[in-house]
Amino acid sequence: MSGRDRLRVAVTGASGFCGGVVARAAAAAGAEVVCLGRRPGPVGESRYWDAARTPPDLTGTDLVLHLAAAVGDPPPGRGSEAAFRAVNVDGTARLLEAAGERPVVWVSSASVYAPAGPEPIREDHPLGGLTAYGRTKAAGERLALNAGAVVLRPRAVYGPGDPHLLPRLRRAVRGGRVLLPGPDVPLSLTAVENLADACLAAHSWPAGAYNIADACAYRRDEVVAAACGVPVRHVPITLTRAAATFATGIARLTRREASLSRYAVEQLTSGVVLDISRARAQRWTPRRTFADFLTSAL
């Protein structure tokens, strides 16, 4: 197949954790990859794009996989909200305008959902992000869905090179154990390889939102103990919430991300399980598990 016959895939945020894995997976699948971001991507051609300021150059591309985002658990305040909106909402608007008629797969997050009960969360569950990240991702989603994009909602993405979830858990080890607010809860997690598979398949799916996660939910305590290599001990939720309120106050004063936020406490104490049947109906099957990751990391 000649280079002119190959699918040319634009991957935004390709210098990041998820974007880098998706870019490499697209190249491995035989596509020509154009990486867009403030830093060069891991494969193919790189084009500079600051999502908060300028439209992307999508010249010559056939498909857009949009993973560029402002991420994290920032301290409350107008400054954080504005910084996240500049990328996750305004940047999305610029991307969609530049994409034109090209198919767009827009990677969102399960952080867009409002708090839920014990039942698995379906895509029609109300939105209501608890942080600047969740709120601005929800707002960006609305733009993407109105433009006819496919929106993917993974939860707690992990894998080789993960800079967020697992490092945070391992920093919580104290005295040969991890203290978590009890009781144990079920959680959905998403292997980055499963997310990459969904990104590459989703351009042919009907427009709309799709939950993306591993095949089965996990028990929180088992995952944390396995990832950290130490036992888990429970502490009262009320005590943890008080500590998070204090840490959030310090973060507001220092303008740094809180070491323990109220949002993080809610994520650890609320059983968030995603219903992935809608994506499965498109013949997507999550192939990787947390056990696979631990085995490969040893």
Rank of each mutant, 00 (worst) to 15 (best):
Met1Lys: 04
Met1Asn: 13
Arg4Pro: 05
Asp5Gln: 14
Asp5Gly: 01
Asp5Cys: 12
Arg6His: 14
Ala10Lys: 04
Thr12Val: 05
Gly13Asp: 06
Ser15Cys: 02
Ser15Ile: 15
Gly19Asn: 03
Val21Cys: 09
Val22Lys: 05
Val22Met: 12
Ala23His: 10
Ala28Tyr: 00
Ala29Gln: 11
Ala31Glu: 08
Glu32Arg: 11
Val33Trp: 14
Gly37Ser: 10
Gly41Asn: 00
Val43Cys: 05
Gly44Val: 12
Glu45Thr: 07
Trp49Ser: 11
Pro55Gln: 04
Pro55Lys: 03
Leu58Gly: 10
Thr59Asn: 10
Thr61Val: 08
Leu63Glu: 06
Leu63Asp: 02
Val64His: 04
Ala70Asn: 12
Pro76Lys: 05
Gly77Trp: 12
Gly77Leu: 11
Gly77Arg: 04
Gly79Tyr: 10
Ser80Arg: 02
Ala82Arg: 07
Asn88Glu: 07
Val89Trp: 11
Ala93Gly: 08
Ala98Met: 09
Arg102Gly: 15
Pro103Phe: 08
Val105Tyr: 07
Val105Pro: 00
Trp106Glu: 04
Val107Asn: 04
Tyr113Ser: 01
Ala114Met: 05
Ala116Val: 12
Ala116Trp: 07
Glu119Trp: 11
Ile121Val: 13
Arg122Lys: 14
Glu123Lys: 01
Asp124Thr: 10
His125Lys: 12
Leu127Arg: 09
Leu127Val: 09
Gly128Phe: 10
Leu130Lys: 14
Thr131Phe: 15
Ala132Trp: 08
Tyr133Thr: 03
Lys137Trp: 13
Leu143Tyr: 07
Leu143Glu: 04
Leu143Phe: 10
Asn146Glu: 15
Ala147Asp: 12
Gly148Met: 09
Val151Asn: 05
Asp162Phe: 00
Pro163Arg: 09
Leu166Lys: 01
Pro167Val: 09
Arg168His: 15
Leu169Asp: 00
Arg174His: 14
Gly176Ser: 07
Arg177Ser: 12
Leu180Asn: 05
Leu180His: 02
Gly182Met: 09
Leu187Glu: 06
Ser188Asp: 13
Val192Ala: 12
Glu193Ile: 05
Ala198Lys: 07
Leu200Pro: 00
Ala201Lys: 02
Ala202Thr: 02
His203Thr: 01
His203Val: 03
Trp205His: 07
Pro206Met: 13
Asn211Thr: 06
Ala217Asn: 11
Ala217Val: 14
Glu222His: 08
Val224Met: 00
Ala225Asn: 00
Cys228Ala: 08
Val232Thr: 01
Arg233Gly: 13
Arg233Met: 14
Arg233Glu: 11
Arg233Lys: 15
Pro236Glu: 10
Ile237Met: 08
Thr238Cys: 13
Thr238Trp: 12
Ala244Glu: 10
Ala244Gln: 08
Ala247His: 07
Gly249Ala: 09
Ala251Arg: 00
Ser259Tyr: 07
Ser259Ile: 11
Ser261Phe: 13
Ala264Trp: 11
Ala264Thr: 08
Gln267Trp: 13
Gln267Gly: 08
Ser270Gln: 13
Val272Leu: 15
Val272His: 15
Ser277Ile: 03
Ala279Arg: 00
Ala279His: 01
Arg280Thr: 02
Ala281Tyr: 08
Arg287Thr: 07
Thr289Ile: 01
Leu294Lys: 03
Ser296Phe: 15
Ser296Asn: 01
Leu298Val: 14
Leu298Trp: 08
